[in-house]
């Protein structure tokens, strides 16, 4: 077992540009669910909109990248309005139903054969990241972090990604301690009470949906910048539920919750995965793997990681139900 490789790779995964993407998507969801109490089950839809609003114009229509990024913002706002206007006046469950449906519609549209000319279909789109490579001041061969080699492009994405995370998280923190954030929390607690005190509940919910959706779209953009390919299967409902796991893990309604949650979540999954990969490996010199093949072998260990990760998360939730940074007192009134 090469523990230095396993650990360095797991640590790198927890801070990589991919982790930045998860932090952003989860931070957006935290604005919706953690602070405002909006049951958004379609955060993957916002991420998909962010990803494809960047990749389609650049790949298909040769747009300059700043214009394409502007489109990411516009499309995220439009999607929030589309979801919010019919549902935010209704009870919370309706938003849940509509968001999960719309996110799937978006994914199926991106995957459809009929629109492959636009979206690339199942193969997705590539070659839209050249601008990011061009503005990268770092040498392309990159560096070695401990035992993990990181190429220059991903190191660059990682660095500005964390800068983005710092800006976004500080922004969320600043907003949530303001009277604006107080109104959001009051809506989460009881929207009729907020209304009876003269708060425009609909407008505040809408603003929350737009801001969280915009942050989620940025996350989706970062996800495909890191992979250098946009593919519909990256935006399935699994992404949304991973983000729920992340914010519950890190602590709901905490600005640093999504950051810590993502790092733990990705570390655990990667650690389990790569450890199993090493433990099931056979070489001509050593044909018997560390773990007997009747338990798990090379061909099916990748499914095991989610089982083990699931157990690890369940344990954490039982031991510390409020999450790492959650407030224990709040939890006492939450479980009713």
């Amino acid at each position: 077992m090469k523990w230095d490789l396993i650990l360095s790779n797991s640590f790198y995964t927890a801070i990589s540009a991919n982790a930045v993407a998860y932090i952003l998507v989860a931070s957006g969801l935290n604005v919706h669910f953690g602070y405002t109490g909006l049951l958004n089950f379609g955060q993957a839809g916002f991420a998909a909109i962010g990803a494809y609003s960047l990749s389609i114009p650049i790949n298909r229509f040769d747009w300059p990248w700043p214009l394409s990024m502007l489109l990411v913002v516009v499309m995220a706002v439009l999607l929030a309005l589309l979801l919010g206007i019919p549902t935010l006046r209704l009870r919370a469950d309706y938003l849940a139903i509509v968001t999960i449906a719309v996110a799937e519609i978006i994914r199926l549209f991106l995957n459809s054969v009929r629109f492959t000319w636009l979206t690339g279909g199942n193969d997705g789109l590539q070659g839209f990241t050249r601008f990011m490579e061009n503005i990268n001041p770092l040498p392309a061969d990159g560096i070695t972090l401990w035992a993990q080699k990181v190429d220059g492009y991903r190191l660059w994405l990682l660095m500005i990604g964390w800068l983005l995370v710092a800006v976004i998280s500080t922004g969320i923190w600043a907003l949530m301690r303001s009277p604006w954030g107080r109104v959001l929390k009051s809506i989460r607690e009881d929207e009729d009470a907020a209304r009876s005190l003269g708060k425009n509940v609909f407008a505040h919910k809408m603003q929350s949906l737009i801001i969280g959706g915009f942050i989620g779209a940025l996350g989706g953009m970062w996800l495909v910048l890191d992979k250098q390919s946009s593919q519909p299967q990256d935006f399935s409902t699994t992404l949304t539920f991973f983000c729920y796991t992340i914010i519950i893990l890190g602590g709901v309604a905490s600005a640093k919750g999504p950051i810590v949650g993502t790092m733990i979540f990705l570390f655990v999954i990667q650690f389990v995965d790569i450890t199993l990969q090493q433990a099931t490996r056979t070489t001509p010199q050593d044909p018997t793997p560390l773990i007997p093949t009747w338990i798990v072998d090379q061909n099916n260990f990748s499914q095991i990681r989610y089982i083990v990760a699931g157990f690890a998360l369940a344990t954490l939730v039982i031991v510390r139900p409020q999450g790492i940074f959650g407030d224990k007192r709040e939890q006492a009134f939450d479980v009713r």
């Binding site: 922004g171 907003l175 303001s178 009277p179 604006w180 954030g181 005190l197 708060k199």
Partner: peptide
């Protein structure tokens, strides 16, 4: 505090 009306900070941009 929530009860007070006409709070400047309840506007998204000023809240920041």
């Amino acid at each position: 505090r929530l009860g007070a009306t006409d709070q400047r900070g309840e506007n998204l941009f000023r809240g920041l």
